[in-house]
């Protein structure tokens, strides 16, 4: 399996990467430096990456390496210190509904019901739509995540899995071009997690938005993603490697796990995370 490891740090397979000049979403020489008490702290250093429209990208890397920071520059909650992030040829400067986020802590409004949370998003983004249509969109997206029954429940009455479903329904109901998920299933039990992964894939198959998702789970990435971005350790993290995950879609968990490629890819990722960029190492 060691033969699969790409020697070059920027070893993204050329076949999958779009020509950088006109990619749908691209990071151009993006660095992020935070000023701290002990002087400037470089989180990300000169990131270059291109993402195709409709692609499902997963990002993996050790805690604190800058995954959230990377995606925050797409959602617009953080701005690059150097370089720029370009979507559709336009530089990203602030948050907007075309880049919807599924937040790490769900960020649902507890004084509203599941239905009201989704409706509020639809109504905020598309206020001019006829009332009937906004209600229809809300119901439709709650149904997609299997929450028709629980729609009228207050957020506090929902389980963690149900909350995450509402958050996903809310994010997709406004039809974003890019969907950003920051470790969405980390806090869920194994069964709920697999259910939600499948639901997410099903919905993504119908909407074909571009997905950027942070995960700590290699199997999750292998099941969901077209490509897996593996980041080196911070400070000054870089993209170590981008792995192509070419299983045909629609995917079936059992089938891909029988594919010998699955284990090659899995070992490649494990080797990256636990040998070449093991957590204790300071990247150099």
């Amino acid at each position: 399996m060691s033969t699969l490891i790409q020697p070059a740090p920027m070893g993204a397979p050329a076949s999958a990467a779009p020509p950088p000049g006109d990619a749908f979403l691209r990071f151009e020489n993006v660095s992020k430096v935070y000023p701290t008490a002990t002087g400037p702290y470089t989180v990300l250093d000169a990131i270059d990456m291109a993402v195709n429209q409709g692609e499902f990208m997963c990002v993996i890397g050790h805690s604190g390496c800058g995954k959230s920071t990377l995606l925050n520059m797409v959602s617009g909650f953080a701005t690059p210190t150097e370089g720029q992030v370009i979507l559709h040829g336009n530089r990203i400067t602030k948050p907007g509904p075309d880049r919807m986020v599924v937040f790490q802590g769900y960020a649902l409004l507890p004084w509203f019901t599941a239905y009201e949370n989704v409706y509020l998003a639809v109504d905020s983004v598309k206020p001019d739509l006829p009332e009937r249509e906004k209600k229809e969109i809300t119901r439709e997206h709650l149904a997609m995540v299997g929450l028709t029954e629980a729609a009228e429940k207050k957020i506090l009455q929902l389980s963690g899995g149900m909350k995450q479903r509402v958050a996903i329904a809310r994010a997709l109901a406004i039809r974003p071009e890019v969907l950003i998920l920051d470790e969405p299933f980390g806090a869920l039990d194994a069964i709920t997690k697999e259910e939600l992964q499948e639901e997410l894939l099903t919905i993504w198959n119908t909407q074909k938005c571009t997905v950027l998702m942070i995960t700590h789970d290699i199997d999750e990435a292998l099941f969901l993603a077209d490509r897996l971005v593996m980041m080196t350790n911070g400070p000054a993290a870089k993209i170590g490697e981008i792995m192509d995950i070419s299983f045909p879609r629609p995917r079936n968990r059992e089938e891909i796990m029988e594919d010998p490629l699955y284990y090659d890819l899995r070992n490649q990722a494990l080797d990256f995370l636990y040998s070449r960029f093991a957590h204790d190492d300071t990247a150099d």
């Binding site: 959602s75 909650f77 602030k94 986020v101 937040f103 409004l109 905020s124």
Partner: peptide, 26 residues
Amino acid sequence: PQDYRNVALVLQMSSRRFFTKVLIPS
């Protein structure tokens, strides 16, 4: 919570909507 503010930001809520749906209830 910053999370609620972020939701309002990403949805680009009008300040009136932020006021009635997020600020006051919170």
